[in-house]
Simulated assay, not measured.
Amino acid sequence: MNFDEIYGRPPEGVWRAPGRVNLIGEHTDYNDGFVLPFALSQGVTVSAARRDDGVFAVRSLQAPETAEVSDPVPGSVTGWAAYAVGVAWSLREAGHPVGGASLLIDADLPQGAGLSSSAALECAVAVALCDLYDLPVPGPELARIAQRAENDFVGVPCGIMDQSASLLCTSGHALLLDCRSGLSAQVPLDLTELTLLVIDTRAEHELVDGGYADRRAACEKAAELLGVPALRDVTDLGEALSQLGDPVLRRRTQHVVTENHRVEAAVGLLRAGVVGEVGALLTASHLSLRDQFEVSWPEADVAVEESVRAGARGARMVGGGFGGSVVALVPSDRTDRVREAVRAAYADRGWPEPRFLDATPSAGAGRLS
């Protein structure tokens, strides 16, 4: 089925937004910290046309469910379609005059793999609606609008990173994003003789469940007890840990503070052109996410261990946790060895075979035709 067959007319255009891999800086975004994502070549495509009846209609080539609503409000749409309809609601809530639209969604980005398929969907819809209705919304503002759709319409308390990466990244670069100010900078990500290998562990995650929200609530509680606006503002980690009586809050705080330092160190290494040295920071990040933030999962731990044993410079889980993907920084002549090592380890444990993706730092969202 194509747009013409579904809606009885051709689309007015086609837009695309990429998924992302966060090179480093996990669970720092909603703590007003720093993140360093890059956009993938894989993403979500939206074919769209305006409607004069005020109806917002959404179809997907990957899912049987459909949605048609003329007055979208939180709770009026559920499932995957809520991410798309929520963008129209959020644009209207921000004062932008968005009318009805017919949308057809297509994607080559795996869902549930921790590669931000939800933000890619939101951002593809956002740029489509802005073009259709001639809305000159700057990228950082549009990222906030898409984030609000996920926070307040879908009900996922995500930070700003995923939407910013999908909208603002440029080819061959990672995006250093200050999640408090919204300021960003492009950081060269030169992968000469290196490959960023994404390993989809096949353990799907779902951020609407309680694990992600619990971690965010713990960070907010720790910041409140420490008397700072957010954990990003902790300057003396030792002193902060001594003030927190709850061992869980101490672990969460230790991860966020040290992860921000790892982002800053990674940026320095990338700007100095020593990309391979970032590998040690990736592995340190994973160990912190596993032991301090406690959001890793067995398939990710094995993928990291086997990747490093087979020659990767470093590896870590990406995304919110509890399932999804691992990213490994691998010398290009060792990628086959890493793939085989991870496959063999999964087979030994009776797990589904992992999927692999060579990640190329790519451009953010835009119009295709």
Rank of each mutant, 00 (worst) to 15 (best):
D200G: 06
G319I: 00
D246S: 08
A57K: 08
Q62I: 11
V187L: 11
S76L: 06
V58S: 06
F34M: 12
I6W: 08
V73P: 08
Y133Q: 11
V330N: 09
G366N: 05
G323D: 03
R144L: 15
D152C: 13
Y346W: 11
R337C: 14
H27T: 09
S60H: 10
A67T: 09
G314I: 07
V21Q: 00
L142M: 08
V208D: 15
P188K: 07
T170E: 15
L226I: 13
S118N: 00
V326R: 05
L121Y: 02
G227I: 09
R252E: 09
T170C: 04
F56T: 12
A84E: 07
A143V: 01
V208M: 13
L183W: 07
E150K: 00
W15D: 00
L132Q: 01
L225G: 03
V263F: 06
P140S: 05
V308K: 09
S164H: 13
P361C: 14
G321R: 01
P136Y: 01
D108P: 03
I160W: 01
H261I: 14
A266F: 00
G276T: 12
E259Q: 04
T78S: 15
E193P: 06
P361A: 02
V127G: 04
A81N: 12
Y30K: 09
R144C: 09
G159L: 05
D134V: 12
D178F: 02
E122S: 06
L194F: 10
L241M: 08
Q254I: 10
G95V: 05
Q62G: 11
A120C: 03
W15I: 01
S118E: 00
G314R: 11
T192A: 14
S117A: 07
A149F: 05
P229D: 02
L241N: 07
E294T: 09
T335G: 11
R215H: 12
V55L: 15
S242W: 04
A217L: 13
A359D: 14
A88S: 13
V263T: 15
E239Y: 14
A266Y: 00
L91A: 02
G227R: 13
E141G: 08
S325I: 12
R316D: 09
A284C: 09
G75H: 02
N31P: 10
A107W: 05
V154K: 01
K221G: 14
E93K: 15
R9D: 06
R215P: 05
E220M: 10
V125G: 01
V77L: 04
W89P: 06
G100W: 01
L129D: 11
Q147N: 09
C123M: 02
L237P: 09
M1S: 14
D108L: 10
D71Y: 11
V326Q: 04
R349E: 08
D32N: 05
S41R: 15
N22G: 03
D236T: 12
V98Q: 03
A345Q: 06
V127W: 02
P298L: 03
L241T: 09
H286N: 02
F153Y: 15
G245Y: 10
H255G: 10
G245L: 08
N31D: 14
A266C: 00
G79A: 05
A17L: 00
S325W: 04
A39Y: 04
V73H: 15
V304K: 02
C219A: 11
V208P: 10
D358C: 13
